[in-house]
Simulated scan of single mutants.
Amino acid sequence: MAKENLRYLVLTALLAALCAVGGLVKIPVSATASAALDSAPALLAAFVLPPVLAGFTGALGHMATAMSSGMPFGALHFIVAFEMFFIILVFAHLHKKGFHKLKWAWMLIANGVLAAVPFYFLISPAFYIAAVPGLVLATAINIAVAFVCVPALQRVKKMVKS
């Protein structure tokens, strides 16, 4: 059991670090959204980690992006980090339950559209309307990157188990 916990701790740290690196790769979608490749490693975490740890990886990934962007919305990024935790947690649960198409749709809708809803009220409706197209595009790019990487990750996972 301790060996398994250590493996999860190391994988969480590794994938969170990859989220931080991905956070440095900015996606120029709009002036209103801090978009980067920080979600792709968090999506991959859902394939190898328990859902809670995958969610934690997603939250850390967003905070890394926010910090490397200069935290343009300050403390509001903590709201987004919590949202990322929840979005990746649900994504991981959907993966574990075998809802393979639904998990990708969930990610696109939840991260691209729903995650910005609090800012409709906290900042303005115009901010929300301006941010959503860029967030949907950035989410689609993160999904595509993760989707392409999944086969390699599954091969590595099989090698580690044997």
Rank of each mutant, 00 (worst) to 15 (best):
K3D: 10
E4H: 11
N5I: 13
Y8V: 12
L9R: 09
L11M: 11
L11G: 08
A13H: 07
A13D: 10
L15E: 07
L15V: 11
A20T: 15
V25P: 07
V25S: 10
P28F: 04
V29C: 02
V29N: 00
S30F: 11
S30P: 07
A31Q: 14
T32K: 11
T32W: 15
A33F: 01
A33I: 01
A40M: 03
A46S: 09
V48P: 02
V48A: 05
L49T: 12
P50C: 05
P51K: 11
V52C: 11
V52N: 04
L53T: 05
A54D: 02
G55R: 04
T57L: 10
L60E: 04
L60Q: 06
L60R: 03
G61V: 03
H62Q: 15
H62L: 13
T65L: 12
T65Q: 11
M67T: 06
M67Q: 05
M67F: 12
M67E: 08
S68H: 15
S69D: 04
S69K: 03
S69E: 08
G70T: 15
G70M: 13
M71R: 01
M71K: 02
P72D: 00
P72Y: 00
F73R: 05
I79C: 13
I79N: 06
F82L: 06
F82K: 01
M84R: 00
F85Q: 02
F86M: 11
I87D: 01
I88W: 01
I88G: 00
L89T: 02
L89M: 09
V90H: 01
F91Y: 07
A92C: 05
L94D: 00
L94V: 03
H95M: 12
K96M: 10
K97C: 11
K97D: 12
G98R: 09
K101L: 13
K101S: 11
K101V: 13
L102I: 13
L102D: 04
W104N: 05
W104Q: 09
A105Q: 10
A105L: 14
L108D: 07
I109H: 04
I109Q: 01
I109P: 01
A110V: 01
N111P: 02
N111D: 03
N111A: 03
G112R: 06
V113Y: 00
A115F: 02
A115T: 08
A115N: 05
A116G: 07
A116L: 10
F119Y: 14
F119A: 02
Y120Q: 08
I123V: 14
I123K: 04
S124T: 03
S124P: 05
S124H: 04
P125N: 13
I129C: 11
A130W: 00
A131R: 15
V132D: 06
L135Q: 02
V136K: 01
V136F: 04
V136A: 03
L137V: 09
A138Q: 03
A138R: 02
A138P: 11
T139Q: 12
T139I: 14
A140T: 08
N142D: 15
V145H: 10
A146K: 07
F147C: 03
V150D: 07
A152M: 12
Q154K: 15
R155M: 14
V156P: 05
V156I: 12
K158I: 07
K158N: 15
S162H: 14
